[in-house]
Design a protein around this nucleic acid. Structure first.
Length: 477
DNA sequence: TCTGGGGTCCTGATCCGG
DNA sequence: TCTGCCGGATCAGGACCC
């Protein structure tokens, strides 16, 4: 999907279409998750500090991510992909590999291209959003093709043209080459893919180590035989928080670690897993990051056990100077737990304490919300709960004015724009934050009446000569 | 200027047992 | 009994991805 979060927000909010939109954490230490193409033209890009984005694009709309909405759209897209093949490998909410051959829907370039074009049409019809398709004989090349195809395009790499196509591209194009490896290679005089192919495997292994060197040399020559893997079990579960202001109080640090441990266990239990190794992560005031881990005798999903292990690990960490981020994670996952009678006894003992902690965790009024929803929440800033209810970009309903979204809030007031995905840009009104007529609302679907693609792609083999009938899309700008 | 959150994989050091 | 070697487990850190 193209600029996924930002595109979804533009589809949901007609007044933002064609305007720069930036989605990310809005706290003082937030970063950009996704920038719309309009914002990218102003120099805003993913992972950029929000403060820098605001300087570059002061007039852009700044919104908090709404994962519930993105997940709904993602599920729709993944369902469509599942119709093409049993082998679908999601990479994230907005990207996936599909093995078309395994699905029997394409066996040559022409049929693959047809499926790709139809898929783009169907995704647009069902979700209202545009997606790009990369078609090639391997995952690496398909990924490169889809990047080249963005936005709103399709690119097919013909078999036999791979090496020639890759040769002049930057080494950074290859998956696994980030800033550090890119620098490393540049210092060795290698800037484009052909340099890697010419350097030879031995030289790359010498520079980058065995695994990375071998893999990179193969990819530089266009070889990539990694299969599309449909189901992958998670190998770790973790949660972390960056604080608006560094933590100095040791007691507060300890409290936060326990809170994170509880959140981590909740995630673990929701996934029906347990874990054997507990990991504590601490980022200090100077951005230096360290991890400490402890492996238990058997896998656990007991809050007390994880909390106490994390607390023990914290004992060994020097936090003088301040703590910027804390995280707690569990690895060595299993589908079972070892009966730990001691832990159960201890748990019963601490039951009262635990429920008190749970109460404290709900004081922001959203304690029951999914964990990821709290990702962009600001912490330690002393923000009022009443303001947190009205986060920029979130949907609301007003008894008189109907459905809208929060444009901003502050000094006891909240500004709302009343519009829906299928209406023209709406009007703005301001209310007191405590106005009883105004309530949080669920996101609306992005298209009012999705075209009927329920039989797609059953007609595919017979329709090689004609595309799927396209419906008029009301929600397009 | 000032750097999120949730993951995966790899490497090297160290320890331990056979 | 001592020594060397080897492999597996554990731990910490780094790079990368979206």
């Amino acid at each position: 999907m193209d600029a996924f979060y930002a595109s979804a927000e533009q589809a949901a909010k007609p007044s933002l279409r064609g305007k720069p939109v930036v989605v990310g954490g809005l706290g003082t230490r937030g970063v950009v998750a996704t920038a719309s193409y309009e914002a990218r033209r102003l120099g805003v890009h993913s992972a950029m500090p929000m403060a820098q984005a605001r300087r570059l694009a002061p007039n852009a709309a700044y919104l908090v991510p709404r994962f519930a909405l993105y997940r709904t759209v993602s599920d729709q897209v993944m369902e469509l992909l599942g119709r093409l093949s049993p082998l679908v490998e999601p990479l994230s909410l907005d990207e996936a590999f599909v093995d078309l051959e395994a699905g029997g829907v394409a066996d040559d370039s022409a049929s693959a291209r047809l499926v790709g074009e139809q898929l783009r049409t169907v995704i647009k019809g069902v979700t209202g959003l545009s997606g790009s398709v990369g078609l090639a004989g391997s995952k690496m090349l398909a990924k490169i093709a889809s990047e080249e195809a963005k936005p709103d395009g399709l690119l097919l790499i013909e078999p036999g043209t791979e090496r020639e196509l890759l040769a002049p591209m930057s080494v950074r194009t290859l998956p696994g080459v980030g800033p550090a490896t890119g620098d490393h290679l540049r210092r060795a005089g290698m800037t484009v893919v052909s340099h890697l192919a010419e350097a030879g495997e031995a030289e790359l292994v010498r520079l980058l180590g065995k695994a990375h060197g071998v893999a990179l040399h193969r990819m530089a020559r266009g070889y990539d035989d990694r299969p599309v893997v449909a189901e992958r079990d998670a190998k770790s579960v973790s949660v972390e928080d960056t604080f608006d202001v560094d933590l100095h109080d040791r007691v507060r640090v300890r409290t936060e670690v326990e809170r994170l441990a509880d959140r981590c266990v909740r995630r673990l239990r929701t996934a029906g897993r347990s874990g054997r190794t507990v990991v504590l992560k601490v980022r200090r005031y100077d951005f230096s990051t360290l991890t400490r881990s402890e492996t238990l005798r058997g896998p656990t999903d007991e809050p007390t056990v994880v909390r106490e292990a994390a607390a023990r690990l914290l004992e060994a960490v020097d936090t003088t100077g301040g703590v910027r981020l804390l995280g707690v994670g569990v690895t060595g996952l299993a589908d079972f737990t070892q009966e730990d009678l001691f832990a159960q006894a201890a748990d019963a003992e601490h039951a009262a304490e635990e429920s008190a902690a749970a109460d404290a965790a709900t004081t922001d009024g959203r304690g029951g919300a999914p964990d990821e929803a709290s990702g962009a929440e600001s912490r330690g800033s002393g923000e009022q709960p009443a303001l947190r209810r009205w986060q920029a970009g979130h949907d609301v309903r007003h008894d008189v004015h109907g459905h809208g979204w929060v444009q901003g809030s502050g000094v006891g007031r909240v500004t709302v724009r009343f519009e829906e995905p299928w209406t023209p840009p709406g009007r703005v009104r301001t209310f007191l934050v405590g106005d009883p007529a105004l309530r949080p609302a669920d996101p609306l679907p992005l298209v009012r009446e999705a075209a009927d693609y329920s039989s797609w792609p059953a007609s595919l083999p017979k329709s090689l000569s004609g595309p799927v009938p396209a419906e008029e899309d009301e929600s397009s700008p």
